[in-house]
Design a protein around this nucleic acid. Sequence first.
DNA 1: TAGATTGTTAATCGATTAACAATC
DNA 2: TAGATTGTTAATCGATTAACAATC
Lengths: 210, 210
Amino acid sequence: MSKPGLISMSVIKRMPRYYRFLCDLLELGTERISSRELSNRMGFTASQIRQDLNCFGGFGQQGYGYNVRQLQTEIGKILGLNNRKKAIIIGAGNIGRAIATYITYEFKTFDIIGVFDKKESMAGQMILGMPTRHISGLEEFCKENLPTVAVLCVPTSAAPEVAAQLNSLGIKGMLNFTHYDVALNYPDLQVENIHLNDSFMTLCYKLNKN
Amino acid sequence: MSKPGLISMSVIKRMPRYYRFLCDLLELGTERISSRELSNRMGFTASQIRQDLNCFGGFGQQGYGYNVRQLQTEIGKILGLNNRKKAIIIGAGNIGRAIATYITYEFKTFDIIGVFDKKESMAGQMILGMPTRHISGLEEFCKENLPTVAVLCVPTSAAPEVAAQLNSLGIKGMLNFTHYDVALNYPDLQVENIHLNDSFMTLCYKLNKN
DNA sequence: TAGATTGTTAATCGATTAACAATC
DNA sequence: TAGATTGTTAATCGATTAACAATC
């Protein structure tokens, strides 16, 4: 069960949630927790929790449960949260600036080393103590600084070109805020889509149904 | 198959994506499309597309395929995109301001009628031509203007209190950017979570695996 | 009519839940 | 030891895919 690559996305997608709840428990000073108790707090079944965790190894102990600190550390390792990665933001509009700030203060695994925009008027404007750079300097910057992650906050119309460029410049992973389907066109890139519009529409549906 | 309430979330979650692709096709001037052709463009199987659409009705025609405009209109109706809803933003930080702006220009179904923040120093600052309001005025504002949707952009620590208040003030749906589990605590509210951190961690996992 | 493509049923696949023996 | 709770297997459930008759 602990062979990597065999673990389904359904399981992976739940890991950040476990991590979050374990962090909360740690802060509360909880030392141990059973799958049953976690189940109550998180809304997953105890069975699923044990099943999920066992994909990566036997972190628990019969009759005792799980050690909160150990489990949190293990999940952190599984997710690779300790491997810091250099990231750049493409698009210094509202979303781009918000995400740059958010990542810098709330998600230490990514290290924002540059913010780029196409607009000449943006160039030089300070974000997080760094000057916004014009997109024309992207290639040189990447060759010098070797970022591996990019956050795509440009208008969807600009996305195909930017994605192609980032791909050729050695970017390995992307957070895609546009509606352009990067993953479909670059199957070797790791992509996480954050389609705000999709979430809005799903909420609309739920609201109209009730 | 077209009984409402019986349609699974897996299907619903794909509808916004259909809608998006159909909008693109419309802009390209495409009149008709087959499930097979859609399948190629979207990366779903043709079988799944037909299965999904048939949950809501037979929008296609044998031997012809689907009429793009008609299908787009139908999916818009299914999602309820024409029923505009009054929305408020709680938390006027970077994310709050970015989302307020984004919704106003990119998602016309929600109409942002107020932005609130706890910080005294924020009060009065203009966003989208409206003054940011102090959170103390939330109750009065809601009673007067009856918003039904709220976007939660406060720090997670503040979320439980704010969620309780919004719930009691008649809010029906929430876009939750915090890590507080609103849905677990208010099962009658419609909630869409946008857990940026979870997306970041999932990307980390994918990057470390490869 | 012949060709194309849907709507729909049946088969497969995968994910979740239940159960329980192992063991702390 | 007795009680608790895991790890793991088996059973169930739901979602996806395949197949094909209906029909435009």
